[in-house]
Design a binder for these strands. Structure first.
Lengths: 216, 216
DNA sequence: TAGATTGTTAATCGATTAACAATC
DNA sequence: TAGATTGTTAATCGATTAACAATC
């Protein structure tokens, strides 16, 4: 039998496999030719081909011995797995540099992400334009979320206000939070939080540089 | 004996342990009181206390039964592990929205990161100011890297130019790359790359929302 | 056909969790 | 002292890697 136990139509993917599927998805955007082999993918990512085959065995797409996996088919299945064809309405909270940079980012459309509003609590910022969005006061949050059926809230405020903003988002019924503040948010179980904390990457960089210095 | 085999003075930390140590480090910034227990840390991060104790057992810092770990001592050891007290000179390549946002980011100083220059290849941008840095042409890269002993290069250019920029950085002798372009860079073995790709997080968000939708 | 590459099972490896003695 | 919490060993769990039959 193909695959493993399913959960209401969705396979249970091991976490590391899921993480690599994201890398495969990105990599396929740049792959040329009709077919790609596990060997090719593995080399580009610096992992083992057996790993790639094992990961892809969780998908419906089958490879052809001697030829490899059909790029278009793989792309399509991964697109579906990640649901990127489906439109998702998003609001940004915090119209500082980071919030503005995100509001201006052109790459979201490809992932079915549509930024419908940006909020701030600073009266100075309210009414100003960021990209083609007018900065709104937080009191409008609930209305906007309902009106546009917003599914994701992006937190771009200082860490001191992050929990407070998270509470607001949760109170509006938002179930997905993309948190750019360097803090662990407390949210109900059914709300999912994805953290994007560049200070954590900094620690990796500094540690590794440090480590090499002490070695040589 | 405390710890495990050492590598020239540095313990070999399991990768997952290292990732959690970064979370502990961040969390300690907000912890109040002189001591903290594994139970407290675990609860805040949603993991098991045994896991926390096991992780911390890789460090020199010892906890006190019935009391916990001394916050200051733990902080200090983690600061050293990540080398954040040590100054690291950094250059940013790409003076677009993202590069500018990073150049303006005030939080780097706390991690010993000093942005010494920002580069762009667009003649229009060269000479303009981003934060208090004048945008420089790429031909000055080598000189600046040597002059300021730059250790990290931050790539904030479109993915089409990312590999090219990486090559330039490597040619200047830079050993640490912080890559914001959504592409896997090819670099010599002794160069370390940390990827920061928000599109990958997007896939996680979209997948999880998708998954819930299909469940309910 | 012969050779190459897949898909899958079994073996290995590594990380997490459980258990519990040590000790403040 | 009694109770709570650590540090560490052993048991369990899960992921990776190796091996190889299937097959294009």
């Amino acid at each position: 039998m193909k695959g493993n136990s399913k959960n209401e139509g969705f396979m249970m993917l091991p976490k590391p496999t899921f993480e690599r599927l994201k890398l495969y998805h990105r990599l396929l955007l740049d792959v040329e030719g009709e077919y790609v082999s596990s060997e090719t993918i593995a080399k580009l990512l610096g992992i083992q081909p057996e790993q790639v085959r094992k990961d892809l065995s969780y998908l419906k797409t089958m490879g052809k011995p001697k030829i490899g996996y059909k790029v278009e088919e793989l792309k399509k299945e991964l697109d579906e797995l990640f649901g990127i064809k489906r439109k998702t309405a998003v609001v940004i909270v915090g119209a500082g540099r980071l919030g503005s940079a995100l509001a201006n980012y052109q790459g979201f459309a490809k992932y079915g992400i549509e930024i419908v509003a940006i909020f701030d609590k600073d009266p100075e910022k309210i009414g100003q334009f960021v990209s083609d969005l007018m900065v709104l006061p937080l009191k409008d949050l609930n209305r906007v979320v309902r009106r546009f059926n917003v599914e994701i809230g992006v937190i771009c405020v200082p860490k001191e206000s992050a929990q407070e903003v998270a509470n607001l988002l949760v109170a509006c019924g938002i179930k997905g939070i993309w948190n750019f503040a360097p803090i662990e948010l407390e949210v109900p179980e059914d709300v999912l939080v994805v953290n994007e904390d560049i200070t954590q990457s900094l620690l990796t960089l500094k540690h590794l540089l440090n480590r090499r210095r002490n070695k040589n």
